[in-house]
Structure formats: structure tokens, C-alpha cells
């Protein structure tokens, strides 16, 4: 009884700010709503029909997938590498760790402002450094043309979020018993085979979880892309969350926007169920 009372505030808030909006989103997606007045009429599945018939939804979905896969790949590769590096004894390791982790904790707004300054076509240090080192002949338009814009957001996404992988992997690395390495060394394993035979199998589980979680989060990323490119040029980097925002507040079509959001969630549900399954298994242990 007391237990129920203690959880009650949580449940109430949940219902108010999550369950109700969620149900309401599905409901709203069946209406045609003009954002400024919030007036609308019931149109059934027409929003969805238009969406799936049009090109923009599919283009945005593709963009979302490209962005998610590319940036996730970079995050994992960089994250694992950095974690392995930070696991070694290097000088001022604590400071190195803090510096590596910091991008994850700064606001996306800060990250974007800094990168847009770095990417600045005239005075940005990046163009300058690349021209100075001979990688570039001409200043590059990092955000205003394709495929540069996609590459840029993927890079910034990797920079911002790889520390998450680092923390997770680092925590796991610290729990691998030294005996395993000693045993492998006695069995004649070199550095590389120690990595593939001892470290990697131990990291498999946590990597699975990290990849699923990051995939979900990258898929729904709004701030970073919106602030970097706004979806542009045109809709070349417009992902589904950006499309929701644009439909709702750019095109004032609130109903269609919720339809996009609901469709997007349906896609995400696959990952979410996978993740929940996985966590369920871990809970059971």
C-alpha cells in the first residue's frame, strides 16, 4: 500500500507528460491541424497516405539512416580505440580522461557554435589548417553543400558522442581480470591476439548495449543537425525529427507533423524492443 503511494507521483507525472502525449500524438496524426490557430478537422489516415506517397518522408528516412549508421560507426570505432588507449598507463591520465569526456557533457548548442566557427569558410581554422598542410587547394564549404554537409554533421556527431562509448568500454575494461591476460600470454598469445581473444569477447555484451542505445539516440537526434545545417542544403541533411519540426512550425501542419513523428517511432520501435529484450535478460541475471 505504502509502496503504491510512493510510486504514485511518478505514475501521475508519467501519465501526464508521457502516456497522454503519446496517445494524443497518435490521435492528432489523424487530423489536419493548422498550427497557428490549432483548429483542425478529422482526416483519418490521409496524413499517412500523403506521407508515404510523397518523396520527402522517404528521403528524410534515408538521411536519418545514413546519419545514424555513419556517425554510430565512427563513435564506436573512435570510442573503443580511445578507451583502450586511456586504459593504458599514460601520463596525466585523469586529465586526459576528462578532456576526452568533456564533449559529451557540453551542450549541443556549445558544440555546434564551436564547430560552426571551426567550419567557417572564410576564417575557420579548419579550412586554413587543411590548406596549409596541402590537403585542400580551396576553402571548403563545409555546411552549405553536399556531401560536405552530411560529412560534417556525421563528424561532429562522432566527436560529440564517442565519449559515451569511451566511458562504457572503459568501465568494462576495468573489470576484465588480469589473470585472463596472463593466461593468454602464457599460452603464447601476442598483443594482437590478446586483444581479439581476450578483450573483444569480454566487450561484446557491453558493445551490444552501447550500439543499441546510441542507435536509438542518434536516430532521434534533433539539436545537433538542426543547429548545424537546419536540414540543408534544401533537405539534403533533413532527418525525420527535423521533418517533424518543419511540418509543425515551418509549414504549420501539426497533424502531418505528428504523423511523421508516429511513423518515425514505429521505425525506432524495432531498436527499442531489441534493447528492452537485452536489458530484460540482464535484469534476469
Amino acid at each position: 500500500m505504502l509502496g503504491v503511494m510512493l510510486i504514485a507521483p511518478c505514475v501521475l507525472i508519467f501519465c501526464a507528460v508521457i502516456v497522454y502525449p503519446l496517445v494524443s500524438a497518435v490521435y492528432l496524426s489523424l487530423f489536419n491541424i493548422f498550427t497557428p490557430t490549432l483548429q483542425g478537422n478529422f482526416v483519418g489516415l490521409q496524413n499517412y497516405a500523403e506521407l508515404f506517397a510523397g518523396e520527402e518522408f522517404w528521403r528524410s528516412l534515408l538521411n536519418t539512416l545514413i546519419w545514424t549508421v555513419c556517425t554510430l560507426f565512427l563513435q564506436v570505432v573512435l570510442g573503443v580505440a580511445a578507451a583502450l588507449m586511456l586504459h593504458q598507463a599514460i601520463v596525466f591520465r585523469a586529465l586526459a580522461r576528462s578532456l576526452i569526456l568533456f564533449p559529451y557533457f557540453v551542450s549541443t548548442v556549445v558544440a555546434v557554435l564551436v564547430w560552426r566557427w571551426l567550419f567557417n569558410d572564410l576564417y575557420g581554422i579548419l579550412n586554413h589548417l587543411m590548406m596549409w598542410s596541402g590537403l585542400l587547394q580551396m576553402p571548403l564549404d563545409w555546411l552549405g553543400s553536399m556531401p560536405n554537409a552530411m560529412v560534417s554533421i556525421v563528424l561532429v556527431g562522432a566527436w560529440k558522442y564517442f565519449p559515451f562509448v569511451v566511458i562504457a568500454i572503459l568501465a568494462r575494461l576495468q573489470t576484465i581480470p588480469d589473470q585472463l591476460y596472463e593466461a593468454a600470454t602464457i599460452d603464447g598469445a601476442g598483443a594482437w591476439s590478446r586483444f581479439t581473444d581476450v578483450t573483444l569477447p569480454q566487450l561484446k555484451d557491453v558493445l551490444m548495449v552501447v550500439v543499441l542505445l546510441r542507435a536509438i539516440w542518434d536516430f532521434k537526434e534533433f539539436d545537433l543537425i538542426y543547429l548545424m545545417t537546419g536540414g540543408g542544403p534544401l533537405i539534403a541533411t533533413q532527418t525525420l525529427p527535423l521533418m517533424v519540426y518543419k511540418e509543425a512550425f515551418g509549414l504549420d501542419a501539426m497533424g502531418r507533423a505528428t504523423a511523421v513523428a508516429v511513423a518515425m517511432m514505429a521505425v525506432m520501435l524495432v531498436f527499442m524492443v531489441l534493447y528492452l529484450r537485452r536489458m530484460g535478460k540482464e535484469e534476469a541475471r
Binding site: G3, I7, P21, V244, A257, M268, L276
Partner: peptide
């Protein structure tokens, strides 16, 4: 505490933790 629905609730928490804000934002705005 033990009460019916506790496990379900825990799962729901994890589920909502993954929900994209863009789905909730429009109804919340309204």
C-alpha cells in the same frame, strides 16, 4: 516493495527513457 504491475512499470520506465522527444513535443505544446 512488491505489488502487482511493478515489473511492468519498471519496463515502461526503460521504454519511456528511449522515447524520442519529437513525438511528445507536439501534444505537450498543445
Amino acid at each position: 516493495f512488491r505489488y502487482p504491475g511493478r515489473e511492468r512499470l519498471a519496463q515502461l520506465v526503460l521504454f519511456t527513457y528511449l522515447l524520442p522527444s519529437v513525438v511528445l513535443i507536439l501534444p505537450l505544446y498543445l
